[in-house]
């Protein structure tokens, strides 16, 4: 069984993102870029499934410019067998990203597609669910545990009410939550080895996907800030203040 893993190049989660004064976007000049953290977890899970003998090949896929080859190389260094860069200058919205993955799914015929539950840049949390819908296959989103057994996966999902377990027939789409695993660190010899692993570049235009029905995004603003608060010097003063404000 092949596993397809999507990895998105995003601003590193440690970077404090600021909106540009003209509202045209966020200022990412010179910012450190990384694999979306949830996607790194998705890749780790795929690698573990391969190491447990449940999968034979792990393919990492990224959609974007040549710059995202950097993240694909990191994925290969973590242990993926090969990489595909779908080359485009455009930042695809979730529906077009899902259609792109579907085109690759039809080509590669994977038993599982594992994606991060959301990207930390646009926070959409849509691509995995959309791929499952277009593919007409099961989805197990926000996964914190994955057990694959032959043609079935048993997935524990982090839902508001607690932990939900579902069973899905393969092929299927799984999206990873934070606690699914802790991704491995890349070692230097693996980085050297990754340079020799295959990385295929497919122009987005070759996949002939429809890229319509886009949302229009036309202004970025900084979030509202809270007013400066007060300090109290004792528990009694705190309780008095809360009673005063009608909160207790």
């Amino acid at each position: 069984m092949k596993i397809l893993v999507g990895i998105k190049r995003v601003v590193d989660f440690n970077v404090r993102v600021r909106v540009k004064p003209d509202g045209s976007g966020v200022d990412l000049d010179g910012a450190k870029m990384s694999i979306n953290p949830f996607d790194e977890i998705a890749l780790e899970e795929a690698l573990r499934l391969r190491e447990a003998g449940k999968a034979t090949e792990v393919i990492v896929v990224s959609i974007g410019t040549t710059a995202c080859q950097q993240q694909l190389r990191t994925g290969l260094a973590m242990g993926a067998d090969r990489a595909i860069q779908v080359d485009t200058e455009e930042k695809l919205q979730p529906l077009a990203a899902a259609r792109t993955f579907l085109a690759l799914v039809e080509k590669e015929q994977p038993g599982l597609v594992i994606l991060g539950k959301q990207a930390i840049d646009d926070d959409n949390s849509q691509t995995g669910q959309m791929l499952a819908a277009l593919w007409d296959r099961p989805q197990a989103t926000f996964a914190s545990e994955v057990v694959v057994d032959d043609q079935v996966a048993r997935v524990t999902r982090e839902v508001d009410a607690g932990l939900e377990t579902i069973e899905i027939d393969l092929p299927a789409v799984i999206t990873s939550d934070l606690r699914l695993n802790e991704p491995r660190f890349v070692k230097l010899p693996d980085i050297m080895k990754a340079k020799r692993k295959p990385l295929e570049v497919i122009p987005l235009t070759d996949l002939a996907i429809a890229n319509d029905n886009k949302l229009t995004i036309d202004h970025y603003a900084p979030p509202a800030t809270r007013e400066k608060g007060i300090m109290v010097d004792s528990a009694e003063a705190l309780v008095a203040e809360l009673k005063n404000r009608g909160l207790l």
Binding site: V26, L95, D121, S125, P222, P223
Partner: peptide, 29 residues
């Protein structure tokens, strides 16, 4: 495409939503 996390309505087909963990608010239509 879906509009995720509407925090304010600007018009019948125009909304505000947070991105970058709430560090930016965008207008989406």
């Amino acid at each position: 495409n879906q509009v995720a996390d509407i925090m304010a309505v600007k018009g019948p087909r125009s909304f505000q939503r947070p991105v970058y963990a709430g560090n930016a608010i965008i207008d989406v239509s």
